[in-house]
């Protein structure tokens, strides 16, 4: 009896640890996407519905450059990051700037752009899943029965590295202050000589590039399709509402919270229930603290 029980406990703790590692991985790429979306919303006041498709564009850059053209994987990832960043600049210039005084117009234009990106991916690569041979098959056996693949480790390291760099940039540099100032009061920022066009460009580039790098790094793990942006954008919106709109730190913490809840429910029950739990979490936050867990109170 005792030995059976010990075995069950050992298996359970392995499963728990493995699930936690899976959740850390999920939190990593989700926060990359959600933080970009929050940054764009904070600075420009526009909800970028095409954000999921920017993530998709990052994944397909890797499909094209790494899978088809056999470039080194990390070169393809960097190219994906820069390419999607440039897509962001294009969106800022062609969509959001002309519609600056019309946030609803910006949102609708971004939905149009989402369809363009999706169609471009279908025309270029077809509607089927693109399977990518991972650049590395290496696994780390952290414990008996607890595995972290090297590919997932890349994603975790990229998220920690890039988000820390963004944090330092926002806190310690002049452009970073200007960006936070714009997010808090655009007119007052303009009165300090801060150019809204310049800051919007930078925010859009960074926000898009973060989604791009998330797509590029996860491409070998998720098998990209032109429609992969949908589920991601829904998740990103839940995270933003839970974290508090316009709160970068809130988005990261909410991404971690959401990823843990979602991964655990998926592992121990199923994915459908996990999606429902995610939405219920969002509803609870909306009812109990509509400004989000980390959202500001009313400003005087």
């Amino acid at each position: 009896m005792g030995r059976v029980l010990a075995k069950v406990i050992a298996t359970m703790s392995e499963l728990l640890l493995q699930t936690m590692i899976n959740a850390v991985y999920a939190a990593s790429y989700m926060s990359l996407i959600a933080v970009g979306l929050v940054l764009i919303f904070g600075v420009m006041g526009v909800i970028n519905f095409a954000h999921g498709e920017l993530y998709m564009a990052g994944a397909y850059t890797v499909v094209g450059l790494y899978s088809f053209m056999a470039l080194p994987f990390f070169a393809a990832v960097v190219a994906g990051m820069v390419f999607v960043g440039i897509l962001g600049l294009l969106m800022e210039y062609a969509l959001f700037r002309p519609l600056r005084d019309n946030p609803l117009g910006g949102l609708i234009a971004s939905i149009g752009f989402l369809l363009i990106l999706q169609t471009a991916a279908v025309l270029g690569f077809g509607v089927r899943m693109a399977h990518i041979k991972p650049p590395t098959q290496a696994k780390f056996h952290l414990m008996e029965g607890v595995v972290l693949t090297e590919q997932r480790l890349y994603v975790i390291m990229a998220a920690v590295g890039l988000l820390s760099a963004l944090y330092v940039f926002l806190r310690k540099t002049k452009i970073g202050w200007a960006m936070r100032a714009c997010a808090q009061d655009k007119e007052a920022a303009a009165l300090q000589g801060i150019s809204l066009n310049q800051i919007s460009r930078i925010a859009m580039f960074i926000g898009a590039a973060l989604a791009g790098v998330a797509g590029a790094l996860t491409a070998p793990l998720v098998s990209p399709t032109p429609y992969m942006g949908h589920s991601v954008i829904v998740t990103a919106f839940i995270i933003i509402i839970v974290g508090g709109i316009g709160q970068l730190e809130g988005a990261v913490i909410a991404a971690i919270l959401y990823a843990f809840v979602h991964t655990f429910v998926t592992t121990f029950y199923n994915g459908v229930l996990a999606d429902i739990v995610g939405l219920v979490l969002m509803l609870l936050v909306l009812i109990l603290k509509p400004t989000g867990l980390f959202g500001a109170k009313e400003r005087a």
Binding site: K174, W177, A178, R180, A181, Q184, D185, E187, A188, A189, L191, Q192, G193, I194, A296, R299
Partner: peptide
Amino acid sequence: IAQAPEGRRIFPDLTVEENLRTGAFL
């Protein structure tokens, strides 16, 4: 030409010093 606008319009989530330094942005 600098302006201290109606309603003050300071940046609530910047520190006092950061607020002042945004004035020197250019």
